[in-house]
Design a protein around this nucleic acid. Structure first.
Lengths: 238, 238
DNA sequence: ATAAAATATGAACGAAAGGTTCATAAAACA
DNA sequence: TGTTTTATGAACCTTTCGTTCATATTTTAT
């Protein structure tokens, strides 16, 4: 399972494509893989600090443990590096979520909702760099970040939820008087908020969702309970 | 109604207090009120761009239509200005929400939820500067912003929701098997997400909640429907 | 009406940040 | 052993930004 979603599997083929576009040099492609991933990790992590378009070259170099000169040998200039990171991040993330979707849709709602959240949170914890990159784009990105990074990924996320709810509706798990599209958008919003609050302490300070008294498990349980009762056609228990 | 919540009512007394702390000079207090509010508006608006602690003095001056020199005559230095803006914003917002709370708790859930959201959104539209200030603190603020700005306001917000749900529970409008505290935190999270998405285009690009096809009214209607069915002890309609 | 006090102004200063270059060194390869 | 490829980081230069201060303007007091 972990291996199936391992992001580095898609690396080589994608890099070649981006090299053709002139975003990276041959030198980068032929680099030691460890060095490659260290650099990408550093780029993502540094993007997470102030948002992708505020990226600081010198800090990236320092974080990756290489010299600025090398970065310029790999990417030519800052702009290329930015576009490269963006393309890579969007492509890999879309790929990953695409893989999730069918399995989730097959589960009954009571299971698919926690599974979706748990999957998202786990992804956030293993791929910290990539997730930080997106969180920054979404929550403090520039308008151009929004268009080129947030929109494409956001649409993938919504598609997963839509597929989940559509399948559930076909199985009669959802009230027929609900507008499915709009319901999917609301549920999507809720799940993103709850998921991101668990990954981003700043956000949780705003929502005040998780607290020492309310473990992450209890939150998830109550969330599923609320959503299930909100969506289900069956009558509520006493 | 508008007048009752008009934020400028609290201005003079608060400024005097902050003057005693050495955050503002006598000069600022004796200033033409129009100039005062222009300056505060400019500070809030500029804080909204990159977060309160990234505030740019020169831009504030330009936006307020005054000289940098004047700003230094009012606040002494950038640090004082930052603290002053923070204190003012936190105090005024807490005040405002405190005023909302009792009226909302008296309403049945089906009305209090949309009223809360509508009130919040209207506040966001009239007090754009102040709201931008908070949004920036919450979504791209520094850790120090989190502690001094986000936490206090976030707690006020949660208190309002808690009061609403507590009153509703006492009236038997909420299933007794739900953990009230946790439910309040979840509902709070949902409402913030939905409300902020309507105020912040960047956020909505992430949530994909509002769209040309889904008017703000329809979103609100479905939201209330979902929450009501999620919370209510009564059986769902067929 | 005139002096004195208070307030307003923005050019100029200096420090810091940050992108880029390039001469030089090291490593890999032929 | 020579040639190509890759790595390095000090130095350069532009921009940004907080702050100061000599000067001008306005307000208040006598």
């Amino acid at each position: 399972m972990r291996d199936e979603f391992n992001i580095s599997r898609f690396f080589p083929v994608l890099i070649l494509e981006l090299e053709k576009k002139g975003l990276v040099t041959r030198t980068f492609r032929r680099l030691d893989p460890d060095r490659q991933t260290a650099i990408m990790e550093a780029i993502f992590a540094e993007s997470g600090a102030k948002g992708p378009s505020e990226l600081n070259i010198k800090k990236v170099a320092e974080r990756a443990g290489i010299s600025v000169g090398s970065l310029y040998q790999y990417f030519g200039n800052r702009d290329n590096l930015l576009v490269f990171a963006r393309e890579l991040a969007v492509y890999l993330t879309a790929m990953t979520f695409q893989a999730y979707a069918p399995d989730l849709a097959a589960l009954p709602l009571e299971q698919s909702i926690p599974a979706y959240l748990a999957g998202g949170i786990e992804l956030g914890n293993t791929e910290t760099g990539l997730m930080g990159f997106f969180a920054a784009a979404a929550y403090h990105g520039s308008p151009s970040d929004r268009e080129s990074i947030v929109e494409p990924i956001a649409q993938s996320l919504l598609e997963v939820i839509k597929a989940m709810l559509k399948a559930a509706a076909d199985r009669g798990e959802i009230r027929t008087d609900l507008d499915l599209d709009l319901t999917a958008r609301l549920v999507n919003t809720f799940l993103i908020a709850v998921g991101d609050a668990s990954l981003l302490p700043n956000l949780n300070a705003y929502y005040q969702l998780y607290s020492p008294q309310n473990s992450s498990e209890k939150v998830l349980e109550t969330l599923v309970d609320l959503l299930f009762h909100g969506l289900s056609p069956r009558s509520n228990p006493s």
